[in-house]
Design a protein around this nucleic acid. Structure first.
Length: 591
RNA sequence: GGGGUCGUAGUUAAGUCGGUUAUAACGCCGGCCUGUCACGCCGGAGGCCGUGGGUUCGAGUCCCAUCGACCCCGCCA
């Protein structure tokens, strides 16, 4: 039995040691990060989750420990007992938090050996993700990933503390639930004892949290996994974590106030940053009109400007024809347009074509007019009016898109982000929150040939728009709000419908049949009839918040064991086939 | 479902116009080295060039297919 662990206990974490520990005898345990063998003296950088401390093995001072240190290789697990000494002048390492001290080893024990790791565990080299995920337990030893997960813990615990302090009660809701027709594709779980029937994993605990309001819990929250079987993105995983909450007897402002307090609290506790609520609010229609998206990044300009009225009778047929077909013309202006070369301009139409734009016109503004392929088709007064509305001055570069409402906003909204990224228009480590309000209740789906809920079908309509539910659903505004941080939707919620008659009107507007509604949501409609308090709530994507706070490029960097883009786990090799016996037990057959 | 980038040693990359034995750095192994901290110096091992097919006298390089990683569109109430 090892004398370390059983008798000699760890006294300190490596990263916590400093000048104040000088002279103390300490016991450290951790991984050999690096070994520098000088033939005589050996240095070992000992690493644990707090950081690195240099351990010195001197053959003249302790031959036995020095001999043992010879055997140590990368990632060996070792225990060291030694004395903290202040490094002599000129021997400090300023790049190390503990660089003013080192530990003179008296004894050492190799607690476990390690195979040579498949990649270096430093932060400098970028290792391909498939290898990182296959050896995720090693990848997770790396400092930056550990930092991310520690930050995540701070955000989660800060959230729990804040919400408890504000009277919220954490309540768990089922993972094995009922499949719902609206929304994302469900992950299904077959029921063994009910052959042919399936549970669905929750896309969110939406109905359960509303039921908890009906039950009188008044303020509920939960930090909980949600599941959506849709294609993955850099900021989307099939299972992700929500900060989910619901409050009774509230209106929009009550929820917004609680959330602004929550954001201020976690940014303070996790990043020591002081946010300054209230956050600006922007109506959905204005967000689309000015930024082309409902999740605008407001940290830089390049706002969309409407030129439809100026160009609707233009000699440029593409412009005038677009307008006569009901389209619009908008533009964005880039200052310092010289930063884009002619070659850059040539590839941008390809970029906006992803969003359906058939073309991208551009104009370089100069003293005498424009340098632009479309200049000769425009009248001097059109050019002048555009310059004046765009507030364009020589050197600026203007981009135009003429197309349908949706394509113009999609393409310019994304071009705006693309240019900001390419030209570094955004100051890193800056955080900009915006509430988006007054969402439309419904959006018409061309594929489904019916209206779909923008938010979800339990969102309350604005009171004065209720009559429109049966006459003109497209015009109904929802009592919904999203919180956008740096151009990412990090949370969204709404005041809910608490009357069953209104809920029925909404289902009608969605053209869901009575039978289908009864079958899928009957239990909920019943519950609404037993004294439902007015209530509302919101849910946040914890992963996304942490990702933005950490400055990570991918949501996978803030999740301990994430899935690849094909929703597999290279470490465990999930998903995998199962035995015939398992299938038979579930009454399932592979087709 | 669609578009794109990529796949060469354990890792990260180079590899020209198709041409002889496929390079480098780091890592690894051995030797030397008592103050380094990405230690240094000397030596060494290490390759189904993702996989399969094709073109060619000849393929890491060209073509087709396929698998995988990533980014995007669709999708994500």
């Amino acid at each position: 039995m090892s004398s370390f662990i059983s008798k000699v206990k760890r006294t300190h974490y490596c990263g916590d040691l400093g000048i104040s520990n000088a002279g103390e005898t300490v016991v450290l345990m951790g991984w050999a990060h690096r070994r520098r063998d000088h033939g005589g003296v050996i240095f070992i950088d000992l690493r644990d989750r707090t950081g690195i401390a240099q351990v010195v093995f001197n053959p003249e001072k302790n031959a036995e420990a020095h001999a043992e240190a010879h055997k140590i290789r990368s990632e060996y697990v070792i225990a060291v007992k030694g004395t903290v000494i202040t490094r002599l002048e000129g021997m400090e390492n300023p790049s190390l938090k503990t660089g003013q001290i080192e530990v003179m080893a008296k004894s050492v024990e190799i607690l476990n050996e390690s195979k040579t790791p498949p990649f270096l565990l430093d932060t400098d080299t970028e290792i391909s993700e498939s290898i990182r995920l296959k050896y995720r337990y090693l990848d997770l030893r790396r400092q930056n990933i550990q930092d991310n997960l520690i930050l995540r813990d701070k955000v989660a615990s800060g959230t729990r503390n804040y919400l408890h302090d504000n009277g919220f009660i954490e309540i768990e809701t089922p993972f094995l639930g009922k499949s719902t027709p609206e929304g994302a594709r469900d992950y299904l779980v077959p029921s063994r004892v009910n052959p042919g029937s399936f549970y669905a994993l929750p896309q969110s605990p939406q109905l359960f949290k509303q039921l908890l309001m009906i039950s009188g819990f008044d303020r509920y929250f939960q930090i909980v996994k949600c599941f959506r079987d849709e294609d993955l993105r850099a900021d989307r995983q099939p299972e992700f974590t929500q900060i989910d909450m619901e409050m009774s007897f509230v209106a929009e402002d009550d929820i917004i106030n609680v959330i602004e307090g929550l954001m201020a609290t976690i940014f303070k506790s996790a990043l020591n940053l002081d946010l300054l609520p209230p956050f600006p609010r922007l109506a959905y229609a204005h967000a689309i009109s000015r930024f082309g998206r409902d999740n605008p990044d407001t940290r830089f300009g390049l706002e969309l400007v409407d030129l439809t009225d100026i160009l609707k009778y233009s000699n440029l047929k593409f412009f005038s024809d677009t307008v006569s077909r009901g389209g619009i013309i908008k533009a964005i202006k880039l200052s310092e347009g010289r930063r884009l070369t002619r070659k850059d301009l040539d590839v941008l139409p390809g970029y906006v074509s992803d969003f359906g734009a058939k073309g991208l016109a551009w104009a370089r503004v100069n003293e005498s007019g424009w340098t632009s392929p479309i200049f000769k088709f425009l009248s001097p007064s059109e050019v002048q009016t555009i310059n004046s509305r765009m507030e364009a001055t020589p050197g600026d570069l203007i981009f135009f898109v003429a197309d349908s409402h949706k394509i113009v906003h999609d393409s310019l909204g994304n071009l705006r982000l693309h240019l900001a990224d390419k030209l570094n228009l955004v100051q890193p480590d800056s955080f900009s929150f915006t509430w988006i309000t007054e969402f439309p209740m419904f959006e018409y789906s061309e594929t489904e040939k019916r209206y779909m809920a923008t938010h979800h079908p339990f969102t309350a309509p604005v009171q004065e728009d209720i009559p429109l539910l049966s006459t003109d659903p497209g015009k109904v505004r929802a009592r919904a709000y999203d919180l956008v941080l740096n151009g990412s939707e990090i949370g969204g919620g709404s005041i809910r419908i608490h009357r069953s008659d209104i809920q029925s009107l909404v289902f009608k507007a969605l053209e869901l049949g009575d039978e289908e509604v009864r079958g899928k949501f009957g239990f909920f409609l019943d519950a609404l009839e037993y004294g439902t308090p007015p209530h509302g709530g919101i849910a946040f994507g914890l992963d996304r918040i942490v990702m933005i706070m950490a400055g990570a490029d991918s949501i996978r960097d803030v999740i301990a064991f994430p899935k690849t883009q094909k929703a597999t786990c290279p470490l465990t090799e999930a998903p995998s086939p199962v035995s015939l016996a398992q299938l038979m037990e579930l009454s399932l057959k592979i087709i």
